[in-house]
């Protein structure tokens, strides 16, 4: 069975996403247990320049595919390029970030390359010649450990912020340009434009700090106080399903089972009681702070720090206090 690991370096807006260092660290878990080498591949406009940024992370080779028709992401184009490389060079393990792109590209490429796939993993280990992955199911209400059976390339998407990033060190890695073999006819669904979300804040799935509001926010305009706090950290504003259903917040902000699963360093839940489907989406946050009027709210069972009281009184004071600490 093929031992080598291929790490997919996602480019968005011409920049390689930081999850790549976590993927390389995950790759080392495999090669430490199983031997083999780790290669990376960057596809898209600016690939060569961005490849320089991952040159000293212990990789064997960095392949760059920078062609006109692959300048921007398309499922079919990127899956074609990636599957072609996997088939030709015979990788045993392919690692991608569990981002919007990775979750779209991974399954399609795995199907194309006749592989097996584990989505959204949070932990990997190599044991008795097998890669074992842990992944949450039921939006994090439970998790499972899963392994491949048979000799197939194993595709893994890894949820950001779960594996410590690879450290810089080692010799400079060779960067090689690679033809994709992808033709225009292969790409039938094409992104015509990307409209950035208003507000300029990071997406909840990528933010290090999330300030979330629930039904107790009472009105969309009141989210301003959460935005003020979030902006101190360059963080995101999130919302519970109740707040989204009441139209206080837009759907992309929703955290929970029918929204996004998040994993920030700090999650502050303001006026969120903690319905099971909300807790499922945020419980792995490193530090959880709950602000709620009801001392019996279930959110306090999952929080690390709690304050009982009126969020409209507490949040602005907290913003001022944190501002002082940051200055």
């Amino acid at each position: 069975m093929a031992k080598d690991v291929l790490v997919f370096g996602e480019l968005r807006g011409g920049k390689v996403k930081k999850v790549i260092k976590e993927l390389i660290a995950a790759g080392k878990i495999i090669t430490d247990g199983n031997g083999g080498s780790i290669d990376a591949v960057l596809i898209g406009s600016g690939a060569e320049k961005e490849a320089e940024k991952i040159k000293s992370l212990g990789l064997r080779k960095i392949a760059v595919i920078d062609e006109e028709i692959l300048a921007n992401y398309s499922t079919e184009g990127y899956a074609g390029a990636l599957a072609g490389m996997i088939k030709e060079e015979g990788f045993g393990y392919i690692l991608l970030g569990a981002t919007a792109m990775g979750r779209d590209l991974g399954p399609r490429t795995a199907a194309k390359a006749d592989g097996v796939m584990f989505s959204d993993c949070v932990e990997l280990r190599f044991e008795e010649g097998k890669l074992i992955a842990r992944r949450p199911v039921y939006s994090g209400k439970l998790s499972i450990e899963i392994a491949a059976e048979g000799d197939y390339p194993v595709f893994v998407t890894i949820r950001p912020n779960n594996i410590s990033p690879a450290e810089t060190g080692g010799d400079s890695t060779e960067i090689v340009s690679r033809p994709s073999g992808v033709t225009q006819e292969m790409i039938r669904a094409i992104a015509k434009e990307i409209v950035p979300l208003a507000g300029g804040r990071p997406d909840v799935s990528e933010a290090d700090v999330i300030i979330s509001g629930g039904r107790a926010m009472k009105d969309a305009a009141n989210f301003k106080i959460l935005e003020d706090l979030a902006d101190l950290f360059g963080g995101a504003v999130g919302a519970s399903r109740a707040a989204v259903d009441a139209r206080f917040a837009e759907q992309p902000l929703q955290v929970g089972q029918t929204g996004k699963v998040v994993n920030p360093k700090l999650y502050i839940a303001c006026g969120i009681s903690g319905a099971i489907q909300h807790l499922a989406g945020m419980r792995t946050s490193k530090v959880i702070v709950a602000i709620n009027k009801d001392p019996n709210a279930p959110i306090f069972e999952k929080a690390h720090y709690g304050i009982v009281g009126d969020l409209f009184e507490i949040v602005p004071i907290l913003t001022e206090e944190i501002k002082k600490l940051l200055n």
Binding site: V116, L142, E149, A290, H304, G306
Partner: peptide
């Protein structure tokens, strides 16, 4: 038989919440 679930795991219990009063 491409993949097999080896184990089902409950979630680790959350820590104690420190109430700030």
């Amino acid at each position: 038989g491409r993949s097999k679930i080896l184990k089902w795991l409950p979630l680790p219990k959350g820590g104690e919440c420190r109430m700030v009063e």
